[in-house]
């Protein structure tokens, strides 16, 4: 068994507010292996983006990592000073965000941004950096890359811009890419292209991906394993095929049933009644218990920990033996 590339242990992220402390992420643990694609799904506010932000050290104050550890290979990165964390971002961890315009500075040419990023992290000359940048743009599918590299971000279409962002994320050769809703702002017909480019390139460069999205379709296509988040907790984690075909946690089961499929028509969809609790009103016991069709007494009082229910699969649900209390 190889060493995990990224290891998150009992992570908790808190936001102090005047009404008390809100826990956005609670007691989350998972690993990402080298070259692996880990999908992270959940509804808005489930804490998936917050987990990504915690890993790259970009939680907006007053939010903070309250407990837990994050290890990148054998270096602990959750308590690094901002200066050191900046060096890790880009060099070891690349980032792709939903809106390409948040990663690209509209006032600089693409070439400047790529070359600067490469030279910040790697000891290469300007010419070498430029060559590397053109090659990358070519790889992400920008036609006529050697000319277009000197364009400004606004001269690219939405899909092309997201390709540039992928190139930017990969340009210093990171081992891990955190992609937060990389296709959400794009048209359906362009989404597939971007997912494909991202997957192929990361595989080529040997980079693992943490793919944060609310779109189960994207996960099904791109991920090796998937983590399902609910109310700041990890409800279930396992190989993507197993979770999709045979979800264990009642929340993931409901989530899968709620996705409309092309094969069936004009029928009622399965839906989970109610909505995810606000962070200041998470019920005691299992956070899903008020909406769960299989709820029983223990669920209302005891909080299940995300525990191994069979090799390679973990879930936080009292239905399964071997689940411990959190």
């Amino acid at each position: 068994m190889t060493e995990p590339l990224l290891s998150v242990r009992n992570l908790a992220v808190e936001f102090p507010t005047r009404h008390g402390i809100l826990t956005a992420v609670q007691d989350i643990s998972f690993d990402i292996m080298p070259g692996e694609v880990l999908g992270m799904v959940g509804e808005s506010g489930a804490g998936k983006s917050m987990t990504g932000a915690a890993i790259i050290g970009l939680i907006e104050p007053p939010g903070r990592i309250a407990r837990g550890e994050i290890w990148l290979r054998d270096q602990r990165i959750d308590n690094l000073p901002p200066e050191k964390m900046r060096k890790i971002r880009g060099r070891h961890i690349g980032m792709i965000f939903q809106d390409p315009l948040t990663s690209l500075n509209p006032l600089y040419r693409i070439s400047d941004q790529l070359i600067e990023t490469i030279r910040t992290h790697l000891p290469v000359s300007r010419d070498e950096a430029r060559k590397r940048a053109v090659k990358l743009l070519d790889d992400v599918g920008i036609p006529d890359a050697s000319r277009r590299i000197d364009d400004y971000p606004h001269q690219f279409s939405g899909g092309m811009r997201q390709r540039v962002v992928i190139a930017l994320a990969l340009c210093a050769g990171p081992e891990l890419v955190i992609a937060d809703e990389p296709t959400t702002a794009l048209d359906v017909s362009v989404q597939a292209q971007i997912i494909e480019v991202m997957k192929e390139l990361c595989a080529e460069h040997g980079a693992a991906i943490m793919l944060v999205t609310h779109d189960m379709g994207v996960i099904a296509e791109a991920a090796d394993r998937v983590a399902v988040m609910y109310a700041g907790r990890l409800a279930e984690i396992g190989p993507v095929r197993d979770v999709i075909k045979d979800a264990r946690h009642p929340y993931s089961q409901g989530l899968m049933g709620a996705i409309p499929r092309l094969g069936e028509s004009l029928e009622r969809l399965v839906h989970i009644p109610g909505s995810m609790p606000r962070l200041n009103a998470v019920p005691p016991g299992c956070p899903f218990n008020p909406r769960c069709p299989k709820v029983f007494d223990k669920c209302r009082t005891h909080r299940p920990a995300t525990s191994e229910i069979e090799p390679g699969r973990r879930a936080a649900c009292w239905l399964y033996p071997g689940v411990t209390e959190a």
Partner: peptide, 24 residues
Amino acid sequence: RMLLDAVPDIDMTGRRRKKVEGEI
């Protein structure tokens, strides 16, 4: 046809999303 091909394969039947060329 292209739109239908671009629908992600949720049930993992093994059908690959066809790569659509170009943008609008």
